[in-house]
Design a binder for these strands. Structure first.
Length: 424
RNA sequence: GGAGAAGUGGGUGAGUGGCUGAAACCAACGGUUUGCUAAACCGUCAUACGGGCUUAAACCUGUAUCGGGGGUUCGAAUCCCCCCUUCUCCGCCA
């Protein structure tokens, strides 16, 4: 959520930047917000004045009662009753304006960083880095969904039976590979200075709001309605919300946390031609890195996080590229996002395996996470996160790219974790 | 799930209708003192949203907030109702 004070003072700039993000209603919605804000402040001014009068009267009554002047007190009480009517009307109006304003404000996406290009779709994303070479596979090379069957690693039909489509059952070396990747990613994160966190997998609505999933993406989350809890779509939600309603000390920054969780996504309406096998799931595993940063160096930290993810892919020996997302392809809450895509050789396509973003103060303003600076004032922190990494497409790439007549080769960095160097 | 107790500022903790946005102590910060450290002493020390003044800051000022929400009252941390959380005991249980 953008800060109303900033929006008030920088209307034109805000609208211009929102258009970079393809937010076409910018002009209209920002004008409405500013209008409502002015009305709201007016109501507050009047409400505060009335309340102030009422407080003075209440004090007078107290003094008169103590002095034993009951009759005089009664007279003053009358005056107070009159004020009450007005106060109620003004207070209600104030609350109403606030609600109207906030309802609009939460619909406004974050402003893009100055380096973000305008653009509408994934076509307009800019490749900023590429590493590794695409493997040359044999003519009869198989896509991962066939390899999975061939080596009995993952069973989609079984998952569909016990739960539904998009909930795979991992078996044998397939299951072991999952556990190996999770441990590998967590160990690498800890080596890079992140603290390991194991959060709950369900969160309340306040948390969903804090990181921006609610109300914007309500339909994308599984909702346990009996208890009004949401299954997390990413560990970002619980791990970032650890710092909701917190005022940190400046010297505590940056805070580096990492955690593994399963991720649950309804993916309503997202199913299409390209979503076979592991390409898109309702439940998948992911290790997420999260940082709470000082606004002054959050972009430096974003680079550090990008470097971390790069390192992981190199150790896994997977060819990849990094995209800087254009305005139209960026998420609601992000100011700058780098997507990582591995080249999945048998499918002959790039698959997104990580998304690493700086949210600046968009989430922290929703969450009320600030730090106390040396000047004694509180400022909003910047929040960042990145997948490091999402497992299914890593597995897909690994299986497809490393297939040989005698089996699938496991990258050396992973062998200590799997306990085997080949799937056959 | 049942019964009981409790939730106050960074921490401990006082406060059962007005003089309490909140005592006291501790921590923290600034200062005095000091060869250094320690101690002592003085001061500062919640958050949000407004208003005034201002280029801005400083400063002055209003309102709200004592787990959350609602109510009673001229006036609520204090009384009433609902909810949440924690602790203890019982039940159940991986």
């Amino acid at each position: 959520m953008l800060q109303i004070s900033y929006l008030r003072d920088n209307k034109d700039e805000v609208i211009r930047k929102l258009l970079v993000k393809n937010f076409t209603r910018a002009e209209e919605i920002i004008s409405s917000i500013i209008q409502l804000d002015a009305e709201r402040r007016n109501f507050q001014k009047e409400t505060d004045a009335i309340k102030s009068d009422a407080n003075v009267i209440a004090k007078q009554v107290g003094e008169l009662m103590r002095a034993g002047k009951k009759d005089e007190a009664e007279v003053v009480k009358q005056k107070s009753s009159e004020l009450k009517q007005k106060e109620k009307f003004l207070q209600d109006s104030l609350v109403q304006k606030e609600e109207e304003m906030n309802n609009l404000l939460v619909q406004v996406p974050n402003l893009p960083h100055s380096s973000v290009a305008s653009g509408k779709t994934a076509e307009d994303n800019e490749t900023v880095f590429e590493w590794g070479s695409k493997p040359l596979l044999a003519q009869d090379a198989l896509p991962h969904w066939d390899l999975i069957k061939k080596y009995d690693l993952i069973d989609f039909e079984l998952g569909a039976k016990i739960t539904g489509a998009g909930f795979p059952v991992y078996k044998g070396k397939g299951a072991r590979l999952q556990r190996a990747l999770i441990n590998f990613f967590l160990d690498e994160a800890v080596k890079a200075g992140y603290k390991e966190i194991m959060p709950p997998h369900l969160v309340n609505a306040d948390s969903g709001f804090g990181t921006g999933q609610l109300p914007d993406k309500e339909g994308q989350m599984y909702h346990a309605t009996a208890d009004d809890l949401y299954l997390i779509p990413t560990a970002e939600v619980p791990i970032t919300n650890l710092y909701r309603d917190v005022i940190l000390k400046e010297e505590e920054l940056p805070i580096k946390n990492a955690g593994y969780t399963p991720c649950f996504r309804r993916e309503a309406g997202a199913w299409g031609a390209h979503v076979r096998g592991l390409n898109r799931l309702h439940q998948f595993d992911k290790v997420e890195i999260v940082q709470i940063a000082h606004p002054e160096n959050s972009y430096q930290i974003l680079e550090e996080m990008v470097a971390h993810v790069k390192g992981l892919l190199k150790k896994l020996e997977l060819p990849f590229r990094i995209l800087r997302l254009c305005g139209g392809d960026m998420s609601f809450a992000s100011a700058l996002t780098y997507d990582f895509e591995t080249f999945c050789a048998a499918q002959n396509r790039w698959l997104e395996v990580s998304s690493t973003s700086n949210f600046e103060s968009f989430q922290s303003n929703r969450m009320k996470c600030r730090f106390k600076a040396k000047d004694g004032k509180n400022y909003l922190v910047h929040t960042l996160n990145g997948s490091a990494m999402a497992l299914p497409r890593i597995v897909a790439t690994l299986l497809e790219n490393n297939q040989h007549p005698d089996g699938i080769r496991i990258p050396a960095a992973l062998v200590p974790y799997t306990g085997f160097d080949k799937i056959n």
